[in-house]
């Protein structure tokens, strides 16, 4: 329950970065952004919005409309939470890999997010994980315990695949932005990584 909730939570917050929205609209936008690979029901959306409101990350925006639907907007804490999510890597140990795909899908459609920074942050995070697995291999020695060593290899190759996919994403984003001078992948306001480039 923990990890899907975390992804829905951050997914909805990222969508609200575009402006106030109500639950039905958020569900449709989430499905559109992620290609409906992870369809949400509207109950999940409203439950999540309730918790986000309880946590002070969103607030109701004005009165309910004629159909009784309530729009939500991000609070300052909500904006900070979105920036923090995009600025930090997904941990391979604690989250489903889907969260990363969803994060990138939202990054390319959310205004003001530096997608290349998101990609690099993740690549560094995944590389750190890959280094940890490789250190475990070093310690395991060369062929002393074949079974353990093969399990470690599976983790190593999975992390490597993620990095290769990130390389691919980076090339695609760079190509897309070369074709369109004005688009969403230009600069991240809240990224010190961008300043270092």
């Amino acid at each position: 329950m923990h990890t899907p909730y975390m992804s829905i939570r951050h997914g909805l917050l990222a969508l609200l970065e575009r402006g106030p929205s109500h639950g039905y609209q958020l569900r449709a936008e989430f499905d559109a952004a992620t290609g409906a690979t992870w369809p949400l029901n509207v109950g999940q959306v409203y439950t999540t919005l309730d918790r986000l409101e309880r946590d002070g990350l969103v607030a109701q925006d004005g009165e309910p409309d004629a159909d009784g639907r309530i729009a939500y907007r991000l609070t300052d804490a909500g904006h900070a939470e979105v920036s923090g999510w995009f600025a930090s890597p997904v941990s391979a140990k604690s989250a489903p890999r889907d969260e990363l795909a969803i994060k990138l899908a939202l990054a390319v459609t959310t205004p003001g997010v530096d997608v290349l920074s998101v990609v690099q942050t993740q690549r560094t995070g995944t590389m750190a994980t890959l280094q940890e697995f490789t250190r475990l291999k070093m310690r395991a020695g060369d062929g002393d315990d074949l079974a353990w060593s093969l399990v470690l290899d599976s983790l190593v190759f999975r992390a490597e695949a993620e990095i290769r996919w990130l390389d691919h994403c980076e090339a695609r984003v760079a190509r897309a932005s070369a074709g369109r001078p004005q688009n969403t992948v230009a600069h991240a306001p809240a990224s010190d990584r961008a300043a270092r480039r």
């Binding site: 590389m127 890959l130 280094q131 697995f133 490789t134 490597e160």
Partner: peptide, 9 residues
């Protein structure tokens, strides 16, 4: 250019 090799560093 191989992440798996770089990870030995």
């Amino acid at each position: 250019h191989e992440a798996r090799h770089a990870a030995w560093a």
